[in-house]
Amino acid sequence: METSQNIIDLKDVSVSFDGKIALSSLSLLINKGERIALIGPSGAGKSTLLNVLSLSQVSGTGMLIIDGQPPSYYRNRKVRAKKIGVIRQQFDLVNALPVVHNVLAGKLADWSLVKSILSLVIPQEKEMAKKALTRVGLAHKILEQTGSLSGGEQQRVALARLLVQEPEIILADEPVASLDPARAEDVLDILTKLVLEEKQTLIASLHSVDYAKKYFTRVIGLREGALVFDLPVGELTDRHLSELYKLGETME
């Protein structure tokens, strides 16, 4: 099939909440291995788009095909977990658990209930967790309480979880919004490096245009739920950006 290159195919998707439009007939084609940055002012619909793609936003109209299959195919959580992984701001982790369990949570789709409960007592497949943590540079924190880690470290633990989960597509919703610049670069560095190594597709929403330019291959500008531009990162100009962020003008 010719769609084998298109891992995500979005056609005419509209979503509204209480009559307010969040996405208005948006269409997108995304190829395997792309690293896409979603930018735009607050309320532009970036999070809604990511929720549509992660199949957690189910109401709405239009068509979505992920890797040649309709959303209903991914109703099975195990199939979905192998295809799509999600990372958000730093509140993703269960602070009361040691790091190792938060990482191994990426394996839950594969584990039976008994094995997953047993793992809380005696960590199962600990080697895998260790390997993942080594790749994000946190191997020494494996037994620490997650809540005692800094914000940047917590995001790296979330990355290690994604490594264990091994999805084909990673959706990142403001992954560095709550971090200071140095930590943010650190996390994005690791994220994009891992995506490259694992040949994954990455779609991330960002506040910062600089990060988009530095780490991504394609930039999509959203405003009021509609597409403003969709360009390879090289073609992005200041004019595009001022168009995207200009104040006081509505786009009916």
Binding site: S56, R80, A81, G85, D92, A105, K107, L108
Partner: peptide, 10 residues
């Protein structure tokens, strides 16, 4: 948030 995140791991 942590619950949604765990849900997304399947």
């Amino acid at each position: 948030e942590p619950i949604q995140s765990l849900q997304s791991t399947g």
